[in-house]
């Protein structure tokens, strides 16, 4: 079977990226990182990574609690608080502003702004939503800017390759380590051929 390299079109990558973002949003964290990708692997429809993690006793509820604990203590890979909550401490309603912007400039105004000459030097801001941590980009897209994971187990190995400090802290809180997890994952993927 031949697979054509189609950057950014890998279905597992797309699913995991969306699920990781959802995990960060529901926990109201200030970024989407490797910690959230671990949770995404535990909820993915492909059970390969979930089974590997379960073999080390890692399941979704405890993993969510560990991620929340690490990030809220400031040991995650990015800002612990999201922009909407920070702005709310000043009495500023980010959702209301986003609503006004969409009404005035259209639903894709922010994406269009960053593609336009006016937005070319503009840095990230709250209207973009949480930023992806560099480690997550490395885990999902590799150094060539695209990835292709045959199974979620391969995505798990790529996650471990990203060398995330936040993920290391989460795994420690769950009583394991990146090294042990890598051994379990490599063994499982080797058995699967």
């Amino acid at each position: 079977m031949t697979r054509r390299a189609e950057p950014g079109r890998d279905p597992i990558t797309a699913r995991l990226m969306a699920a990781a973002r959802e995990e960060a949003d529901r926990a109201r964290h200030g970024y989407v990182g490797c910690e959230h990708l671990l949770l995404a692997l535990l909820t993915d429809q492909d059970p390969t990574a979930r089974d590997i993690l379960a073999s080390l006793g890692i399941r979704l509820p405890a993993a969510r609690a560990a991620v929340a604990g690490v990030i809220s203590s400031g040991s995650g890979d990015g800002p612990r608080w999201n922009a909407a909550d920070l702005l709310a401490t000043l009495g500023v309603d980010l959702a209301a502003i986003q609503h006004q912007m969409r009404a005035g400039f259209g639903p894709h105004a922010i994406a269009e702004l960053y593609r336009s000459p006016v937005g070319r030097h503009l840095s990230w801001g709250p209207l973009c939503g949480p930023q992806m941590a560099p480690g997550l980009k490395k885990a999902l897209f590799g150094n060539e800017g695209h990835s292709r994971f045959p199974t979620s187990g391969h995505a798990l190995l790529s996650l471990l390759d990203a060398g995330s400090g936040g993920l290391g802290a989460v795994l420690a809180a769950l009583g394991t380590s990146p090294g042990l997890l890598r051994l379990a994952a490599t063994e499982r993927l080797r058995q699967a051929g």
Binding site: P79, W81, L87, V92, L113, S116, S123, G125, P126
Partner: peptide
């Protein structure tokens, strides 16, 4: 961090209006 978020948002709003 709140003031930084506000400043970043103001930059985005300004750029939207300029565009």
């Amino acid at each position: 961090a709140s003031v930084a978020a506000l400043r970043q948002m103001v930059e985005q709003l300004e750029a939207l209006q300029v565009k």
